[in-house]
Design a protein around this nucleic acid. Sequence first.
DNA 1: CTGTAATTTCGGTCAAAACAGAAACAAGAG
DNA 2: CTCTTGTTTCTGTTTTGACCGAAATTACAG
Lengths: 149, 149
Amino acid sequence: MRMTPAVEKYVLHWGEMGTRWGTNRTVAQIQALLYLSPKPLRADEIVELLSVARSNVSTSIRELQSYQLVRMTHVLGDRRDYFESLHDVWELFRVIIEQRKQRELNPTLTMLRSCADEVDRENETDPVTRERIRNMLGFVESTSKWYEE
Amino acid sequence: MRMTPAVEKYVLHWGEMGTRWGTNRTVAQIQALLYLSPKPLRADEIVELLSVARSNVSTSIRELQSYQLVRMTHVLGDRRDYFESLHDVWELFRVIIEQRKQRELNPTLTMLRSCADEVDRENETDPVTRERIRNMLGFVESTSKWYEE
DNA sequence: CTGTAATTTCGGTCAAAACAGAAACAAGAG
DNA sequence: CTCTTGTTTCTGTTTTGACCGAAATTACAG
């Protein structure tokens, strides 16, 4: 793997995008690098290519593995860990969307249900507001169901 | 408009979500408040209800207006500005998605096209990497088209 | 012109997050 | 046991973003 100008541009942009998608720059950059790399990379290669601290790579890869975007592989006669990203873009985004659903949609659903319950039990909240909460709940429930397919 | 416990919970949660969707807490909170409010609110009311600085409300509303999520209304014989949010949840999210497309998808498309061009002209980049860039470009182009419908 | 409403700008503060670098720790191979 | 590899933890620094509060600015109604 070499950092040609095009690869560098890609990785940097992906890093920026990552910050808008709930993760940090380094995590996104590593994912981009592994996605583009023709073969699995070792942690120390990533350190080299991205100029980040070793500890940083370690925790970032751990995060990517927990999202199931990156998996570990090995080479015969080599004890070191190699890492590769999912390479199927559709699968890649399916996983990303799934993770977002877990981290954002589900908590929001919980909150909205709790609010909807609450405004039904008490009597302080304006009926219009009550209706608005109910509409939003309906919407998020639909979206959630839709994602599951 | 009163800040009943349910409304408060909703607004706080929305604020947190906002930070994950590329805007800041206050902007999202104001949008949530205006969405729930049975009638349009003035800037000074928002200051009161959310305990934020006046200048903050001013710039946040400006941002919401630029996203076309909030519009200004007036009351006869009252010079002050009133604000209300879109109330149709489907429309609301259509606009939000559109804004995200503008700010994220389009720049990414530009970057990917530029990378794809570049790796075709030079000869330093591994053909596998070249293919990966092309695949990602195809994916983002599809997504972009799909959004437009 | 005077008073009110609203926006814009700017400096400064605060908190959170990202990182780096070092050191301690764990675990397996030989 | 010793070497290699990798993880984890800690401390300190830097960066970033959100926010306040004050002041300057614009706009307009009366």
